[in-house]
Simulated assay, not measured.
Amino acid sequence: MSQDRRTVLMSRLENRLDAADGTASRMGVLCALTVEHLAVSGVGATVLASLADGDGQDPSRGLVHATNEVSTGLEDLQLTVGEGPCLDAFVTGGPVLVADLADSHTRWPGFTPGALALGAAAVFSFPLHIGAARLGSLDVYHDRPGKLSDTQISDALILADLATHAVVTELEGHASGDAGWLADPHAEIHQATGMIQAQLNTTTEAALLRLRAHAYTHALPLIDVARRVTDRQLRFTDEPDEDQQDAPA
Rank of each mutant, 00 (worst) to 15 (best):
R212A: 07
L159H: 01
T204C: 06
T203H: 10
D161K: 02
A215V: 07
A163K: 01
V167I: 12
N201I: 04
Q191W: 05
G180N: 12
A215D: 03
L208Y: 14
R212N: 09
A207M: 06
D178I: 04
P185D: 06
A166W: 00
T204M: 14
E205D: 08
L182H: 12
P185E: 10
P185F: 01
T193A: 12
I196N: 02
D184T: 00
D161M: 02
A163W: 01
G194N: 12
A175Y: 01
L209H: 11
N201Q: 14
Q191F: 06
R210I: 01
V168E: 10
H190L: 13
S176I: 15
A192W: 07
T164N: 02
A160R: 00
A213G: 07
L171Q: 15
T193I: 11
H186R: 15
T217P: 04
Q197N: 02
A198E: 15
R212Q: 15
I189A: 11
S176F: 10
H165G: 06
R210W: 05
M195C: 02
E188A: 13
L182F: 08
L211W: 04
T203L: 09
D161L: 03
E205P: 00
D161Q: 09
Y216V: 15
E205K: 03
T204F: 09
R212W: 06
V167P: 08
M195G: 04
H214V: 05
A166D: 00
R210L: 07
I196S: 06
Q199N: 14
L171T: 12
V167F: 02
Q197D: 00
A198R: 15
P185Y: 03
A166R: 02
T204I: 04
H174Y: 03
H186Y: 15
T193Q: 09
A213I: 04
I196E: 06
D184R: 04
D178N: 07
L200Q: 11
E188D: 13
L162K: 07
G177W: 11
Y216S: 14
G194M: 07
